[in-house]
């Protein structure tokens, strides 16, 4: 069996850590070997953050390298572009269409690249863009963007929906379980036809 390599990329504070915890739990429940590599500390303060999740029969390095990712879950457009070199040729790239300007752009020292999603689509075949922020707003909590994205991703794996839901219940705080399940389902339904 080949390994499945998943990257979660985004901006510090967007909930990449929680996402990797949920993914890790799902992998464990599927009885695979799993390693998850996270970023703590300084980058969590609005910097570019990346988390690697690797599952398979036996995992050594916790880190995913260039051209190795099967799935990249991007919580922000520019971060999708930054980490695109890590995608395999036939990788699935799921992009939240949200834009968060980095400080060099904010202060006018750099330009936020135009047409990011179009450019990625021109180079990679399996690209899904998701209005995850709007969907999270619909749930009533913009912090559920991450779980909307998990819902989308769940459609492109063979892991049963129940396992995902259980992992969410286990990982998020009890008072936020309902809103996160709602967010997951929104993402899951949105992506129903995306990966056929």
């Amino acid at each position: 069996m080949n390994n499945t390599n998943i990257m979660i990329v985004g901006v510090g504070g967007q909930g990449t850590l929680l996402t990797s915890r949920i993914l890790g739990d799902v992998a464990l429940a599927s009885e695979m070997d799993v390693k998850v590599s996270e970023v703590h500390g300084m980058s969590q303060r609005g910097g570019s953050v990346v988390t690697y999740v690797k599952m398979g029969e036996k995992i050594y390095s916790p880190v995913i390298e260039k051209n190795e990712a099967d799935i990249i879950l991007c919580f922000e457009k520019l971060e999708a572009l930054r980490w695109i070199d890590y995608a395999k040729k036939d990788a699935t790239i799921i992009i939240n269409s949200q834009r968060i300007d980095p400080m060099p752009v904010i202060i006018g020292k750099a330009k936020y690249p135009e047409k990011i999603i179009e450019k990625i689509k021109a180079n990679y075949k399996k690209v899904v863009d998701v209005p995850a922020l709007d969907m999270a707003k619909k749930c009533g909590n913009i912090k559920t963007v991450n779980v909307v994205m998990i819902g989308v991703m769940a459609q492109c794996t063979e892991i049963e929906k129940e396992i995902w839901l259980k992992a969410i219940e286990k990982t998020v705080k009890p008072q936020f379980v309902d809103v996160n399940i709602k967010a997951f389902n929104l993402g899951y339904d949105f992506a129903r036809d995306c990966f056929i």
């Binding site: 980058s43 303060r45 609005g46 971060e79 060099p104 330009k111 690249p113």
Partner: peptide, 9 residues
Amino acid sequence: APGRPPVLC
């Protein structure tokens, strides 16, 4: 892709 250094929240 321009850089994204950490910032004060």
